[in-house]
Amino acid sequence: MKWKAQLISHKGEARIAIYFEKNPDLIARIKKFPSARWSVTKTCWHVADTNENRIKFKLPLAHTLLPNKEGMDGIATFKRYLFSKRYSQNTIETYTDALRAFLTFFNTKSIKDITNEDVITFNNEHILKNKYSSSYQNQVVNAIKLFFKIVQEKSIQIDRIHRPKREKKLPKVLSKEEVFKIIDATENLKHKTLLALIYSAGLRISEALNMKLTDIDSERMLIHVKNAKGKKDRYTLLSDKVLVLLREYYLVYKPTDYLFYGHFRSMYASRSAQLVLKNAAKKAGIQKDITLHTLRHSFATHLLENGTDLRYIQDLLGHSSPKTTMIYTHVSNDSLKKITNPFDI
C-alpha cells in the first residue's frame, strides 16, 4: 500500500497530511489517531503535527530539520542579494538565520507553494509556541518579505504579510551614581576605558569595538563614529575625563589601528565586553539586569535630564527618527521629581 506523508498548513494549524489511493484498511488505521480528520478542500486525511506522529509517518523530527535543497539554494541566493544591496554583516546573518528557520519549518513544501497562511502557521506553531520575542518575529517578517521579493514564481502576497504589534518596553537606565560605581569598580585599565567611552559617548557596542585611533578628534573634542547602524556616520561627544583615560590607556597598551584589541591582537569580542560589564556591576553591588546598551540608554537619559534638546540627543545617538529618541522622555525622572505625591501632601 503506497502512501505519502507531508507537513501542511490547514486552517492556520500545522498538520501532517497523509495521501494515498482510497483504501479501507488505511482509512481504518488513520481513524485510530485521535487527531485524525478528513479535509474536503485538501482531499486528504491529516493528523496533528507532533514528533510522535512524525516518527510514525517517517518524517524528520522538528529539532533535526534542515531546509530542503530548494530552500538551501534559495538561502544562498538571498545571501548574495543582501550582499549586493550592501546590508551589514550582522543584518545578513540575522535575516539569513530567520529565513533558514522559516524554510526549515516548511521543508516538505516547494517555495512556490508557500502561502500567507503558512506565515501565520509559522508564527503560531513556532514563534509563539516557543515564546520567541516580537522583535524576532519582526526579523522573520523582514526576511520573508525581502526573500519573496526576489522569488519569481510564488503564491505568497508580500503586502499582506503583517508585522507583530510592537512591544512598548521602556529601556533600562542606570543613575549617574550607579554608572560611576561600575566604572570605578573596574580595575583593569582597558576595561575601565571601554566602559567609560561607551557611556560618555552613547556608543553601541559594535561602534566602540570598531573604533579606530584616528576616530578620536582631541582638537575638536569629538568622536567620529563611522559606518554605524544604517551605514551612517555621525559625531558624538568626547569627554575631557575620558580623553585623559584614553591617553593613559594608549601609553600602556599602545594600540596601532583599532582602539581595543582582544588576545593576540584579534578584534575584541562583544561577548567579552558584556562579561566585563557584568563583572563590574557585580563588584559595584548593582543588582539590575543590564547590558552594555544600558550605558547608551543612560547617556541619553542623563543628557535629557541635564536639559539637552532632544534634537541634539537624536544626532548624538544617530537615530533616524525623533520618535526613537522620544522614548527617553518616559524614563527620565527629572519631570517626575517635580510632581508631589498625594500621599505626601
Score class of each variant (00 low, 15 high):
K278R: 15
K278C: 05
N279H: 14
N279E: 15
N279A: 11
A280W: 11
A281H: 11
A284N: 10
A284M: 13
G285Y: 10
G285L: 11
I286T: 08
D289M: 11
I290H: 03
I290A: 04
I290F: 07
T291M: 07
T291F: 04
L295N: 04
H297A: 02
H297R: 06
H297F: 06
S298D: 07
S298W: 01
F299L: 02
F299P: 00
F299I: 01
A300F: 11
A300P: 03
T301Y: 00
H302W: 00
L303G: 02
E305T: 04
E305K: 10
N306G: 09
N306C: 06
T308N: 00
L310F: 01
Y312E: 06
I313L: 07
I313P: 00
Q314G: 03
Q314D: 07
Q314C: 06
Q314E: 08
D315W: 00
L317I: 13
L317Y: 12
L317C: 04
G318E: 05
G318N: 03
G318M: 08
H319D: 06
S320A: 15
S320N: 14
S321L: 04
S321I: 10
S321C: 09
P322D: 02
T324I: 10
T325R: 01
M326E: 15
Y328H: 07
T329V: 08
V331Q: 00
V331G: 02
N333Q: 13
D334F: 10
D334N: 13
S335T: 11
